Amino acid sequence: MVRVCSNVCAGVMCGITFFLSAALLLLEMFSSRIVNDECGSILHTPMIVIGVVILIFSLAGLIGSICDCPALLCIYQVFMLVMILAAVAFTIFALAVTNKGAGKFLSGKGYKEYRLGDYSHWLQKNVNNTKNWNKIKSCLVASPICTDFQRQYSNHTLENFNKQHLNSIQSGCCKPPNDCGFTYRSPTNWTAEETVSNNKNPDCKVWDNSQKVLCFNCESCKAGFLQSIKSSWKEVILFNGILIGCLIIVYAIGCSAFMKQDRRTYP
């Protein structure tokens, strides 16, 4: 009877972690809503891997409890301990790399602007990697984010445009930085003045009105992208904290149930 109850308890715990891991994967897909999933894959991959691994081992534990296989349950318990430690380590790391960086408020503007140097070195290293950024840039160019941006604000005067609350990618990638001093024609069409050649901001020289160029080569675009990733990671960190608490409770109950089983039934 004790063995049956223990198996039922272990099955329930495995089922809980199975659904928690599924929820984590759904959150990762939801947190990439601002741009296409593949645009942020280099930074979303760790949480996706954790979710998939938990899903697989939870399924193994569930099968072990249903089929009364102590070996699978033992593997599940060991895995749970490793996963709790890994989740704690990742959460600390994520908090550290997302602690720095925020948009800069501009006088008379409804939107913020972003500087790459304000973010953690790890995040900067990832987007400054040519291979990584080329993939992200290609994805951003192919996405409708700047074409929708142009369509949404095309009839706005400069005064009205300046009042808009743009998201970080719209601000960093779809328009030139404010300190370039360009003349506004439309949200994605700006005329450079002669003084631009003397501007210390390198983004001013790489801006182009072409829809496939715009400010996708700008540091402000990289910063805007990192801000969107940082925001989505904050949501994941909150969920991860809840997940860790649940995993600890599940692990403690699972260990108790596992130890109550008759040891003579184990190899």
Rank of each mutant, 00 (worst) to 15 (best):
D208W: 03
P46R: 07
S31Q: 10
L26F: 08
K163N: 12
C146S: 10
C5E: 15
L72M: 14
I229H: 01
F19C: 00
C180I: 11
L238T: 06
R185G: 01
C215Q: 09
H165F: 00
V236S: 13
K163P: 11
P177D: 00
F90Y: 10
A102T: 13
P176W: 02
N132P: 08
F161M: 13
G101M: 12
A22L: 05
A23G: 02
V53A: 05
S21E: 01
S143K: 08
N198W: 02
A94V: 12
T45L: 09
I136M: 07
L140D: 06
M83K: 03
K200M: 11
I48V: 10
A192G: 06
Q227N: 02
T195F: 03
A23N: 00
C215F: 09
C173H: 02
C255V: 13
M29Y: 05
L25Q: 03
I253N: 04
Y111F: 14
P202R: 14
F93V: 15
F18K: 00
L214Q: 11
L24K: 02
N217Q: 14
A10Q: 13
M259V: 09
S256P: 08
P202E: 05
S231L: 04
S168A: 04
N201Q: 06
K100Y: 07
Q150C: 11
D203R: 06
Q227Y: 01
C139Q: 04
P176T: 04
N178Q: 03
G241R: 08
N36C: 02
R115P: 11
N134E: 09
Y184S: 01
G11M: 13
F258Y: 08
I136Y: 05
L243F: 07
L26P: 11
Y251R: 05
Q150F: 07
C174Y: 01
Q261E: 11
I248M: 04
S6D: 03
F182C: 07
Y114W: 04
N134T: 09
I75M: 15
H156F: 06
Y114T: 00
L238Q: 05
L95D: 12
L166K: 03
K175S: 00
F216R: 09
K112M: 03
L20E: 00
V53F: 03
E235S: 14
C215R: 15
K200A: 11
I253K: 04
I56L: 03
K109Q: 15
E38W: 09
I249M: 10
E159V: 13
R151M: 09
G224Y: 00
V4T: 13
K104V: 15
N128L: 14
Q227G: 01
P46E: 12
N198K: 13
N7Y: 07
L20I: 00
I34L: 02
N162S: 13
K205L: 06
W133E: 05
K212A: 08
T91S: 12
S168W: 00
D148N: 13
T157F: 07
W133S: 05
G103F: 07
G61Q: 08
G245H: 06
S256E: 07
L62F: 08
T91E: 14
V2K: 15
R185L: 02
N198Y: 07
